[in-house]
Nucleic acid binder design. Structure first.
Lengths: 107, 107
DNA sequence: GGCACAATTGGTATCTTAGCCAAATATGCA
DNA sequence: TGCATATTTGGCTAAGATACCAATTGTGCC
């Protein structure tokens, strides 16, 4: 793979990798409907340590998927782009396709 | 996070994680345009060991993204779904958005 | 200043992933 | 049968990801 093509796929992979975790998918999903959430709200939803959630948010921010804003002692996160929902539609159709194949194997 | 919601995000994460690698993105991209490719062709494009490529393909297959067919001594892989291209469109728009932000910082 | 709350960061243990080489398996052909 | 090619799998090691606790930073309030 030449270096230009590699750079292209690495850039894509970084973004995709940022979403490749259940907790981070919950965050993206939640932000897409709620608009914005502070770290403490997300922490309660996810149910793990706040330090862990903060690191997940840092990953999403590093990939450019979310942006943050500090208001008072809280930090609010929101999606930078809405198209991530299309993304999920595609993932769901893969899941549906897989489920169908599973059924055909049983039938 | 309740177990049902967790299961939903884990299923999604598995699929997304399967694409979260430059070599696997090249494979998906290539299959989306070429239709199908054997392991040796993909190995040459990627430029790493065939055993490595074979493992990447196994990851994609495990997530239900590709299917394989053995013909002769070769194994051909192809995409199970075409919608993965929409997927890339979204990733590209995140990249474009990031690039724009970078420029604004410089200006 | 001193305390409480929100969030991030350092440190560390643990698990997973990725890569290579070598070995095993499968197919085609002489 | 024997050899070459295509692919997968086992074994190993290095690198990366994840989670927790503890410590630190920043803000608001008394």
């Amino acid at each position: 793979m030449d270096s230009k093509r590699l750079a292209k796929y690495e850039a894509r992979a970084k973004i995709i990798k940022a979403m490749a975790h259940p907790a981070r998918l919950l965050i993206v999903d939640e932000l897409s409907t709620a608009g914005e959430r502070c770290v403490c709200e997300l922490t309660e939803m996810i149910g793990s340590d706040m330090s862990t959630v903060s690191r997940h948010l840092a990953v999403l921010k590093g990939a450019g998927l979310v942006e943050d804003e500090k208001r008072g002692q809280m930090v609010f996160y929101r999606l930078r782009l809405k198209c991530i929902l299309n993304f999920f539609d595609c993932v769901e159709s893969v899941l549906a396709c897989n489920a169908k194949s599973q059924q055909e194997l049983l039938a």
